[in-house]
């Protein structure tokens, strides 16, 4: 692990919420978060809904402005980046989103989705763009690429759509991909294939991942480091965060995963109280 490519320093973002009546409440979605993502590592950010993990992802992607705190790209404050450095950031840090159907423009063919990106960044010319797009599809396991280039997103399965989204991100030769729940809408067999693809891409290109997820099991197989988020804060992080949890919330989270083994699952019924008080 080398120097951090992306860091957060005391990052805070609040939203005004109206939930539960007319009074406006301010919710701190991201609350004083410090984070470093090093080149080539896979960092998983886990937490339940409302923990602020997706808000954090959007901040790291520069899609929202923080209320306070800084984001550092290779040590430089994001808000004072020169245009050239900002372009470099936009090339080096890419994104994959949760719902693959929604993250591809429904009116663009696969080849156009890829071509727009490649042409804009001068990674291909009009004459070479088709072959370049085919090569990207090949690299994410969509073979033969000719079967996929002319298709629209709705003509692909969920797993194929997510592969196209990964291909679009990979086309820019990024050093870091921020993936917000990239697996949660997919079947377990497809999830496994995508996890394998991510590992393979990492080994081949040395790129890093930030994987945002609520699914501890999915994340555990690829993450070098895990950060656990709860109510906007990172309550625990490290290589052993899920294996040897220290924080009570992490423990609760780890214990709440369902066990795909009937004997172990039922043995647990005696350990845990049958029905905890419903949370508010």
């Amino acid at each position: 692990m080398t120097a951090p490519i992306l860091s957060a320093r005391r990052l805070t973002q609040s939203f005004a919420s109206r939930a539960g009546g007319w009074r406006r409440r301010v919710v701190r979605a991201v609350d004083n978060v410090d984070l470093d993502v090093c080149e080539g590592e896979t960092l998983a950010i886990v937490g339940e809904s409302g923990s602020g993990k997706s808000s954090l992802a959007r901040l790291l992607l520069g899609l929202r402005r923080p209320d306070s705190g800084q984001i550092l790209y290779r040590g430089e404050d994001f808000s004072t980046l020169s245009p050239a450095r900002r372009r470099a950031y936009r090339r080096e840090v890419q994104a994959v989103f949760q719902d693959p159907a929604a993250s591809l423009n429904p009116r663009l063919r696969v080849q156009d989705t890829l071509a727009h990106v490649m042409l804009h960044h001068r990674l291909a010319t009009r004459s070479t763009v088709r072959d370049a797009a085919a090569a990207e599809l090949h690299a994410v396991g969509l073979t033969p690429p000719d079967n996929f280039l002319a298709r629209y997103p709705h003509q692909l399965s969920g797993g194929q759509q997510q592969r196209v989204a990964i291909a679009r991100a990979m086309a820019l030769r990024p050093r870091l991909i921020i993936a917000d729940e990239p697996l949660s809408s997919l079947d377990i067999s497809v999830q496994t294939q995508l996890l394998e693809l991510m590992t393979e891409l990492q080994q081949r290109t040395g790129l890093g991942f930030v994987v945002i997820s609520h699914d501890l099991g999915a994340v555990d197989s690829i993450a070098h480091r895990v950060a656990v988020m709860y109510r906007g804060r990172i309550v625990e992080s490290g290589e052993q965060a899920l294996r040897r949890p220290q924080h009570p919330y992490t423990k609760a989270l780890v214990n709440a995963t369902l066990i795909p083994d009937p004997r172990l699952a039922r043995a647990r019924h005696h350990l845990a109280p049958a029905e905890p008080v419903p949370s508010s």
Binding site: L63, R87, R90, A95, A102, N105, P106, L108, R168
Partner: peptide, 26 residues
């Protein structure tokens, strides 16, 4: 707010492209 627009922003496509090619047809 859709994710394909966010993806286009992340890919640093120009605003005119995002408005005319990504959002308008939809």
């Amino acid at each position: 707010e859709r994710e394909f627009v966010a993806a286009a922003i992340v890919a640093d496509l120009p605003t005119s492209h995002i408005i005319l090619r990504e959002i308008l047809p939809n």
